[in-house]
Amino acid sequence: MADERHDQYEKDNAPGELSRREFVALSVAAGLAAAAGSAAAADVPVTETNVQVQTPDGVCDAVFIHPTTGTHPGVLVWPDAFGLRPTMRDIGKRLAAEGYAVLIPNPFYRVAKAPVIDNPSSFNFQNPTDRAKLTPLMGSINAPGAAEKDAVAFMAFLDAQPQVNKAQKIGTQGYCMGGRLVMKTAAAVPDRVGAGASFHGGGLVTNDPDSPHLLAPQIKAKMYFGIAANDDMQQPDAKDKLREAFTAAKNPAEIEVYSNAQHGWCVPDMPKQANGEPIYNKPDAERARSKLVALYKAALA
């Protein structure tokens, strides 16, 4: 598999393309991020820097957030369909304050700079025009091989940072579509990723030959899946197939259905549900977050 992957990458990066060039100086801090105005109890001071990460497909705008001093395990955060934005930065800052060096990329860099949606809280999933905005964005990162190429670039970025402890495994977490990207990342760089967590992940189990759950044999990371009640209702066998896949791979995953939580419950700037209730569910979001931190503490030691 690894040989095939290298061969494919060689083809993808044919003469004249990235692999043939000696590309260096690839990730340039592009600007200085201001505090996002949501400061609260931080464990340690953190530094937030806007960066650019070169990938085989272009330059990805991203943010790198880490404790101001020391070296720490690296974490890659895959955003949901609304991409890199203030609420994702808040998630990263809070995690960094607990002792992690966090990279949050704009997953849609191939087609647009972040932020890609002006106001996620007013996004209307029932409106076809709103939904159509997401199609080209999600299509770009879900294209075959895109996430895998990005995963290598992002791992390389983290490993190049003095704030990242390279002796410790890297964690990756994702929300909504980011859950699928977590699995692709863990499978693409299996010896570097020690933990993966998916919260209200979308498209984790499909009937397609490239369904993410079929990647379980390639994944060495300890995995956690938090599933929304409405996602579970829509696809009740997904959790079973996930569990079976990881058990068969002799790497049992922890899988929980949050019976009071709707798809998107972990992300504070989610729009309201059709019934007017907020999607964001703070108690369950905090519970999910505690599972994430426990996973990282155990698996990234």
Binding site: N13, V24, A25, A40, T47, E48, A96, V152
Partner: peptide, 30 residues
């Protein structure tokens, strides 16, 4: 959320090595 004592990093240049070399490092050919 976190970042209560946030500082701002100076602009810096971060070097990432050749991507294919990184691939070989991260996913050694078998």
């Amino acid at each position: 959320m976190g970042g209560g004592h946030q500082t701002v990093a100076p602009a810096n240049l971060i070097i990432v090595q050749n991507w294919l070399e990184e691939l070989k490092r991260l996913v050694p050919p078998k």
